[in-house]
Write a protein that binds this DNA or RNA. Structure first.
Lengths: 344, 344
DNA sequence: TTGAAAGCGCTAACAA
DNA sequence: TTGTTAGCGCTTTCAA
């Protein structure tokens, strides 16, 4: 693989033009915390740098300082619309702090994930933010010995890492509360993958919340998807609707599953929300333009990203501090996929 | 900013364990093209590397080889749903070739763009793929003197760079052809930003295509948005609908604008598609779930990314070759936002 | 076939 | 205050 050999000015070039030594130039440009640099000299160096269009080689810098000023972000699926806001939040917080973000997309494949982590570690990223955690994630434990890792959106129970996640219990409470307020008494749950913290926590929250409100949840009213896709939502929705007891509402573990449930409802010749209400979780982009506009629980994805970035920065500052778990509050967004229980 | 000081094994460690010199270890691990390495020695080195869990430090490697094995991708807006597929395509093609992608999100701000390019150049990226080109893009010309740059999705006229773009003329032809076939004779165009190649090319294609079919396009039938947003689509849609001549169809320069146009149509108490048909361009994710499901022209975004990556690889191999412009073919996707012209 | 040595561009002691 | 020197981890001549 040949390469353009365009030469960019080095610190040495700057030093030569300014008539000083490279070490001095380095100090002048970086504002050495120790001894000072003669203001006149510093000015001369800055002028030379300016004139040559000097940009420090961060690679060399990183090699020397054992830092790369970049951090890796690993996501399960960039085309999942809730992910970009997270990435943006991370970037927005880390950019001003001097870091560039490297992005890796795993397509949900643990193997690709491993490849990316390797590639990033090889590039000496200063830290990793991962949105791909599985509940039991052994490799994660080993990796966290290699470099600081922060989790976002999901957590892992197998290892204690800082994490920024939604308040899953709060999400479900909001959804169930909304439906209960509308008179629904037979509420089903289209659960998320059992291997994810969101899946298991939301399911557990569903049971607890219903119990607290005196709503019975028998086993036929709960089914879990294997992935957060519309197709899986449709499959789970069909299963729920096929049960003995007629259900009047479904709380889906996320918006994609909710969309699939709506498909399943229509397949049976029922209407949403007149016959069956559906509430999702996420408030994904365009949720307001679907047919029907989706009632859902908004999760602040951008803030999730910002918070994860902050947790990583905290880690850098205090590597030994305890892992913090930050739970962000959700918000109910009522649209048209939910309505009064039939017969009310 | 303190830092964990976890030590990872170096090539020297591997060499020591294998009982050879670092240079030899390097040759063994990389399969030196020149002289060979004793197979037994090579095996010993590989075993040592394996045992220590050695991962080459790409930073040091890059410093020496003057390459970083990473390429930068700069996008205008990650939350625009057509962008992730492009990024994924790039990544999918470049990953196996040994490159990691660094992602930068500019939020459409030229200033942030400049910051990112600087950051990436400083990190010695081997090349840049930019989805942010403006038609007249002076900074781009200067930057392309610094490192190989490939454009994706949009082109710039002010500088001759390899680019992977949709066939904009084909897109419009498909849209207009579809509407003409449905009997529409008064077709308006909700154009894209005049500063983008997609905006100007699609507008020009609209005029040409209509002319070729004997459809008159007076000035009241064309209006341009300033950004590709739903809001701008609504604004432009209102302007179009407020004209003297009643229009029966709108070709929008992209799906977001199409969505805004549909809003504008409804605001006036009209129905889509019964009163006014709308055709978008892109076939963005979830276009099939909008209300009404959107008729649109599909652009292969993933392939756009793959192609851009390939163009960059070509550049690496032959830095002096002429800039290639690759235009990818669109495809009409008929859904429910278009129908027969009223009165037919 | 392997070892020795130089050096990529930078920073950080240490001297002067 | 500035110059000198060493070295981050790696590849790559050049000798042996």
């Amino acid at each position: 693989v040949a390469q353009d050999a365009r030469q960019r000015p080095t610190l040495n070039d700057v030093a030569r033009v300014a008539g000083v030594h490279a070490g001095t130039a380095s100090r002048a440009l970086n504002g050495d915390p120790q001894g000072g640099v003669n203001p006149a000299t510093a000015e001369r160096v800055r002028a030379a740098a300016e004139q040559l269009g000097y940009r420090p080689n961060q690679v060399a810098r990183g090699l020397k300082m054992n830092r790369s000023f970049s951090i890796g972000v690993i996501v399960p699926d960039l085309t999942n619309p809730i992910i970009p806001p997270v990435v943006r939040g991370i970037e927005q917080r880390l950019g001003p702090a001097g870091y560039t973000v490297l992005l890796g997309n795993t397509d949900h494949e643990p193997e690709r994930e491993a490849t990316f982590v390797d590639a990033m570690v090889a590039r000496q990223v200063d830290g990793l933010i991962m949105a791909t955690a599985r509940s039991v994630d052994q490799p994660l434990a080993e990796r966290s010995a290699l470099l600081p890792i922060v989790l976002v959106n999901r957590t892992a129970t197998s290892v204690d890492l800082p994490a920024a996640v939604p308040d899953n219990h709060g999400c479900v409470e909001l959804a169930v509360g909304h439906l209960a307020g509308l008179g629904h008494r037979t509420i089903a749950h289209a659960g998320g993958p059992s291997g994810t913290s969101s899946g298991t926590e939301r399911l557990e929250a569903f049971r607890r919340t219903c119990a607290a409100r005196g709503i019975v949840v028998d086993d036929a009213l709960v089914a879990s998807a294997e992935r957060y896709t519309i197709d899986e939502g449709r499959r789970v929705g069909r299963a729920l609707l096929a049960g003995e007891a007629p259900i009047s509402a479904i709380v889906a573990a996320n918006d994609m599953l909710a969309l699939g449930c709506i498909d399943a409802i229509r397949e049976r010749g029922l209407r949403c929300p007149q016959d069956v209400s559906v509430v999702g979780i996420n408030d994904m982009p365009f949720a307001d333009r679907f047919d029907p506009p989706l009632t859902t629980v908004r999760i602040p994805h951008y803030e999730l990203g910002v918070t994860a970035a902050e947790l990583l920065l905290e880690r850098f500052a205090q590597p030994q501090a305890d892992s913090r778990l930050v739970q962000l509050s959700p918000e109910l967004v009522v649209r048209a996929s939910s309505g009064p229980a039939p017969g009310r």
